[in-house]
Computed example of a mutant assay.
Amino acid sequence: MDTLNMRIGGKGEPAVLLLHGLGATGAVWDHFAVQLDRRVLVPDLPGHGPSAPLPHYSFATLAEAVARALPDGGPLVVAGHSLGGVLALELASDRYDVEVAGVLALGVKVEWSQDDLNRAASFAAKPPRVFETLADAEQAYLKVSGLLGIAPTDPAGLRETEGGWRLALDPAAFGLGAPDMPALLAGARCPVVLAAGENDPMSRPEQLRALDADAVTLAGLGHNAHVEDPAAVRALLKRFGV
């Protein structure tokens, strides 16, 4: 049976579903979520934090796991960062029986070289690395999630194991491959906002504009713009009446 950890709080519709990126946990949205005066749903994606791993990772299997864990209710506005942005677009199709009223896809990596894909596949094939000290594991968590210097480690992102500490992240999740962004955008059944930080090395604003001329550039921000400046990213949700 699937076990997906989900934080639910607040009141007001439409609810907002917040999807984190690869290597992080739902805690990455903590300072963002408190700015939303409505019901907020924040899962830890499969293979992250306390959520159970999947036997096979694809954008579809991840989206299915999230969809199954959602409480019954009205429409959702979905904000996703990086991998979470891809999953937000997946959910916005008509394949998951989820009513999505709007999608904010933030910091999605849309261009993948063969080297990028090979490196990700190599990570996916390796067993979890064990660190002798908790401090070393915390540093590794922050590096993998891109949060070094801008956020604390989420303790749920680490696991004590024989010989020390490891990341809770299932390495197999790295094997997702590249998303088909044109198809995802074409298949979305709701308004979509693409956005990236001006200084995001993974999701260049010009790459997003090649997909959508109205893609938003967030001045002075990097890959984790929702952590660096929650208010700037939160303002984009107002386009969906949130």
Rank of each mutant, 00 (worst) to 15 (best):
R239Y: 03
G149A: 01
F131D: 00
L184Q: 07
F174K: 05
G222C: 09
H31Y: 11
A121W: 01
S203N: 15
A215R: 02
R189Y: 07
A186K: 11
V86G: 11
L208E: 00
R68M: 10
L19T: 04
E160G: 08
A88D: 02
R119D: 14
R234V: 04
Y141T: 00
N224V: 12
R95I: 01
V233A: 07
H20D: 08
D200R: 04
R39K: 15
E64S: 15
P182Y: 06
D212T: 02
L117A: 05
E99C: 07
P43M: 05
R239A: 07
D136L: 09
G47R: 11
R204V: 11
L211S: 02
D170N: 14
L236Y: 01
P201C: 11
A121D: 13
A79E: 00
H31D: 15
G74Y: 03
D94T: 11
G9T: 10
V103D: 13
M181T: 06
V42K: 11
E138L: 00
D37W: 04
F174Y: 15
R39Y: 03
E162N: 14
P55L: 02
S122A: 15
P71H: 06
G146H: 00
R209A: 01
G177Q: 10
P71T: 04
A63Y: 12
D214H: 12
M6F: 10
T161N: 08
A231T: 13
L148T: 14
P182L: 10
R234Q: 04
P230G: 06
P191H: 13
L221F: 04
T161A: 07
P55E: 14
L18I: 08
A27C: 07
A124S: 07
G222S: 09
G84S: 09
D30T: 13
L106W: 04
L62R: 10
G241V: 02
D97A: 14
P75A: 12
F131G: 01
F174A: 14
K11C: 13
D136T: 06
Q139Y: 03
S82P: 07
A105V: 05
P171E: 06
E138A: 01
A60E: 15
E64H: 13
V192T: 11
G222L: 04
G102Q: 03
T25N: 05
L104F: 08
P71F: 06
A65R: 12
L176G: 14
G146D: 00
D94K: 08
I8S: 12
E162V: 11
A33Y: 07
E206N: 01
L62N: 08
V34D: 15
A196N: 10
E111F: 00
G21Y: 06
P171F: 08
R166C: 15
V103W: 05
N224Q: 11
E206Q: 07
P230H: 02
V28I: 14
G26H: 02
S122G: 13
V66Q: 05
H223W: 10
A172G: 14
L76V: 07
A183Y: 11
Y57C: 10
L176C: 11
S58C: 12
C190I: 05
L158F: 09
P53R: 10
G157Y: 02
E111C: 00
V100K: 13
S145K: 00
A215P: 04
A235S: 15
G47T: 01
D136S: 12
P53E: 13
L134D: 12
Q114S: 12
